[in-house]
Amino acid sequence: MSEVLLIDDAAGVRLLTLNRPDAFNSLTVELKQALLGALRDAAADESVRAVVITGAGKAFCAGQDLKEHVAQLDSGEESPLNTVEEHYNPLIRTVTSMPKPVIAAVNGTAAGAGASLAYACDLRVASADAKFLMAFANVGLSGDSGVSWTLPRLIGYGRAMEMLLLAEPVAAEEALRIGMINRLVGSGEATTAAQELAGRMATGPTSAYARIKETVLAAAAEGLDEALAVEAGAQVQAGQTDDHREAVSAFLNKRTPHFSGH
């Protein structure tokens, strides 16, 4: 695996670290391809029961690498923004459809597509020095990586439009207040805290987490009747798992359940 992305496994948790600290972990084609491959591998690997994404150094991810982007513009490529369909859209689909929890550990700045990646994760743990910036308008672009869908669902239409149109940074404490992040920890502690949370979830009912992700994702774009139908199907599937039977048995016998993830 390329050194632009570091991969570490521990107790069912796979840690993916964007590793371009000198460039604030901005996303080159190399890094995007490495991250997409690693996410797909994590989704398919049954030994991985939770995933943490973070960045090396002082930033989570500054978004698209503009130096590479300018070089592509100057090269006369027909559409240098094909990367949206080739890389960013598959990245977001892989994170949201992965049948296990994905946690963003946001240390420092998350901007542009980097912030969008964090919004697509199931949970966000941020350090006190984190900040979120929708920088697209500053470079004459609109938005990508699912931000038009994820951000309004996290903080509401009005606040999302403010971030996108004005491109003003939102600090960590404000991000917690408005629901953009789930946990706020001290500076330098985001990755450790996210790994601890992921470790807890890695011992949980992975199959149920997958069904929860499936139903919430479906309900975000469907009416009540459709959501009820998806819930019913998912609940039938969950009810047939070993984890459900183990949880019920543990409850009745007043013991702690041991979840296998199946």
Rank of each mutant, 00 (worst) to 15 (best):
F259G: 02
A50R: 01
S79I: 07
E46L: 08
E174K: 14
S145L: 07
S207W: 08
G76K: 15
F132Y: 10
I212H: 09
N182F: 10
D41I: 12
K32H: 09
F132H: 00
F259H: 09
L31K: 05
L73F: 13
R245D: 02
A118E: 00
R177W: 00
I53N: 01
G179I: 07
A232Q: 12
I7R: 15
D242E: 15
L123T: 09
E168T: 15
Q235S: 14
G114L: 01
K131L: 11
V70F: 12
P169Y: 00
S116M: 02
T54F: 12
A210P: 11
C121E: 09
P21C: 05
D129V: 12
G188A: 10
A11S: 15
S2K: 07
E162N: 13
D74Y: 13
G156M: 01
E86D: 11
F60W: 10
A167D: 08
L15Q: 05
E30Y: 07
A118G: 01
Q240H: 08
Y88S: 14
G233Y: 11
E30I: 08
A221L: 11
D225Q: 13
S47W: 00
F259A: 00
Y157D: 11
L16H: 04
L197K: 06
K58P: 09
T109H: 06
R211W: 04
K254R: 15
K213D: 02
N107Y: 08
R245S: 03
A111V: 00
T83W: 15
G57L: 01
H244K: 10
L217M: 13
Q33H: 07
L133Y: 00
A198F: 10
G239F: 11
E30V: 13
H87W: 12
S207T: 13
G112M: 02
R93H: 07
W149C: 10
G55F: 02
A137I: 07
A23R: 10
V13A: 00
E77M: 14
G37Q: 05
A42H: 06
A10I: 06
D243H: 01
A220D: 14
R124D: 01
A38G: 08
L18W: 02
P101C: 01
P205N: 14
L123S: 11
R40C: 08
V185S: 04
S187P: 12
T94Y: 02
I181D: 00
T83Y: 14
D41G: 09
D129S: 10
Q235C: 12
S97H: 12
V216T: 15
R211H: 14
